[in-house]
């Protein structure tokens, strides 16, 4: 069917992409495993002092920021992902049920998808401002006295709560977009059949909508888990490079932030090996959760 002489030609077409991917994607994967097993690596000279099996991992794990970073990352993942998936699912079902103004509301719900995480993060930080913020004003209506969410002296708990609200808000748009396009692809016949059988609405939702949407729910859950594990820019947006409220630096540090903090010290021998160790730990955790997710959904996803 397709000629065999295209063998050599094909590699010419692939060459530009292959060179770039080779240098900037494939090589780094192997190099990460080199970096993580050498001691005192100096990146400009490329020198190192012998090999080590666990030293670099140990530096990362025993860093007092690691436990905080892991806790924050887990919390962000296991709260923001389920909450935003459920809210997004409901919003898209509702959006799909209306005719008038559907396009208008769609546009509104999609807006966070195209916003700059730094810019809108700053807006959230100011919404949570202890004295001039919108949130405390709103709580004040119900007689709740102002809470110091993100300003000087704010605690870890309030800071991470504010961050959770922001991350959940930010994640909604993409999920709604995917769910809505999935819903619009569902054959109307299923719903007509359900109406003939006079099935209740919640039954239709559980027995038709969710199963038929399950490949998308699965896809969104897996990618959102991976995305949430990588949270970093959102933290920068709300808290800046300090990664926490003033006076409580690094309170909301994440695992990815550890990688970049090591990179910032790149001149120090061994710093990049620590970064590699942190990134491989992140990869390991992501991989485990992706696999668990896939195992769980194998039984539940209907293709």
């Amino acid at each position: 069917m397709l000629e065999d002489q295209s063998n050599v030609k094909a590699w010419f077409y692939l060459l530009p992409a292959l060179i770039l991917l080779g240098i900037f994607i494939f090589f780094p994967i192997f190099n990460a495993f080199f970096l993580v097993f050498v001691d005192e690596y100096n990146y400009m000279q490329g020198t190192y002092e012998g090999f080590t099996l666990i030293n670099n991992f140990r530096y990362v794990v025993t860093d007092h920021n690691f436990r905080v970073a892991m806790t924050n990352t887990m919390l962000l993942t296991f709260v923001s992902v389920p909450v935003s998936v459920i809210i997004a699912l409901l919003i898209s079902v509702w959006l799909n049920a209306i005719k008038r103004l559907q396009g208008f509301f769609q546009t509104i719900f999609f807006l966070p998808y195209v916003t700059n995480a730094i810019a809108i993060g700053m807006a959230f930080a100011f919404m949570f401002h202890v004295r001039f913020g919108l949130i405390n004003w709103f709580l004040g209506i119900f007689g709740i006295s102002p809470i110091n969410w993100v300003n000087t002296g704010a605690s870890w708990g309030t800071a991470i709560f504010a961050l959770l609200v922001y991350v959940t808000w930010l994640g909604l748009a993409f999920k709604i977009m995917v769910f809505l396009s999935g819903l619009q692809g569902i054959d109307k016949q299923y719903y007509d059949a359900a109406r003939v059988d006079s099935a209740s609405r919640s039954r239709v939702f559980r027995r038709i909508t969710v199963p038929l949407l399950s490949p998308m729910i699965m896809y969104i859950t897996v990618t959102s888990f991976i995305g949430a594990f990588k949270a970093y820019t959102e933290v920068i947006g709300m808290f800046g490079e300090r990664l926490g409220p003033p006076g409580n630096d690094r309170a909301v540090i994440t695992v990815v932030a550890l990688v970049y903090r090591s990179l910032d010290r790149s001149g120090v021998p061994g710093a990049l090996s620590e970064a590699a160790a942190a990134s491989l730990i992140l990869f390991g955790v992501t991989l485990v959760f992706t696999m668990v997710n896939m195992q769980v959904s194998k039984k539940r996803v209907h293709y």
């Binding site: 900037f24 494939f26 090589f27 780094p28 594990f229 990688v259 990179l263 790149s266 970064a275 991989l287």
Partner: peptide
């Protein structure tokens, strides 16, 4: 080759960033 391409999409970008930083510096 296509499978190898797709497989790398699962790997977090932070892993690439470290070595790419070394590469562009060198």
């Amino acid at each position: 080759l296509f499978m190898a391409f797709i497989a790398t999409m699962m790997i977090p970008g932070e892993i690439f960033v470290i070595t790419n930083y070394i590469t562009v510096s060198r």
